[in-house]
Write a protein that binds this DNA or RNA. Structure first.
Lengths: 140, 140
DNA sequence: TTGTTTACTTGAGTGCATCAAGGATCATTG
DNA sequence: CAATGATCCTTGATGCACTCAAGTAAACAA
């Protein structure tokens, strides 16, 4: 399990609550991926393939090196969850797309990762709106 | 940079806000560690050594394998940020403690990781209380 | 055509994480 | 007290994430 990104000494209740949220969220994400024998990174990439797209687009969206995507996609391909087809319009590029099995696994992952849904579900609609507003304001 | 733990298709505004928060938080934590040439895991362990303590206690608190802690502490020791002394009361055990330089780096990390402070600081005291209450309720 | 940029891959290196196995020490029990 | 078992930690092996440097191939521009 990944080590938490813990604030050493939270200087307020709100900070501590933020940290707890992030920690529980991250662990839940990892656990949901593990249920399907996926790493968090694999689940992440698989989840961004609702549309077929190029490696570069994935790397840019995820803010990491292209060679990192190459490896993750290669593993997803080996698992039969993704295909990497040549792009007819640009033979340098590859188009990545989920296979049917990739779609199924992705759907099962979305179902297994209940944390965000459950957490939000504990709040009334009004409270949900308040939380959203507060988080948006805190994010600046 | 670590890939985000992104919800594939957030089913509500609140869920999307939660995800954004977690993503920004994680990236900020990683960036603060990187400024000091630390990995997130190293910063995490270093931050939990306000008191000298055993390897096992660290592993338990962080929810990971003891051998994982062995490696991370070994690297921190090689960096001169931590010492690993024999425990006089139990010669199987080791007591890990920050060196003066470890204290300094840890303090600089706490200073560099401004995200949580800054985010909370954008809210009024009342709003901070509301946020704390909402997050606690959402966490169940 | 020549040169440059773009898209991706490969290879090397580091670190995190887990598991299996082992050594040393403590603790218990017969 | 000696044997047994549990505890604390380390070692070794493996897999994955991540980054950087370097390379290939194709597109593009002059």
């Amino acid at each position: 399990m990944a080590l938490p990104n813990g604030p050493v000494t939270p200087s307020s209740e709100a900070e501590a609550a933020l940290f707890d949220l992030v920690d529980v969220y991250d662990r839940a994400y990892e656990a949901a991926a593990a249920e399907l024998s996926l790493s968090p990174a694999q689940a992440c990439v698989l989840g961004r393939l609702d549309e077929r797209r190029g490696m570069g687009a994935l790397a840019e969206e995820l803010g990491c090196d292209a060679s990192n995507i190459t490896q993750i996609v290669a593993r997803l391909e080996a698992l039969g969850l993704v295909t990497r087809e040549p792009n007819p319009r640009d033979r340098r590029a590859r188009l990545v797309a989920r296979t049917p099995r990739g779609n199924e696994i992705n759907h099962r992952f979305a179902t297994a990762f209940t944390f965000a849904r459950t957490a939000v579900g504990r709040l009334s609609p009004d409270e949900q709106d308040q939380l959203t507003a507060l988080l948006r304001k805190a994010l600046g």
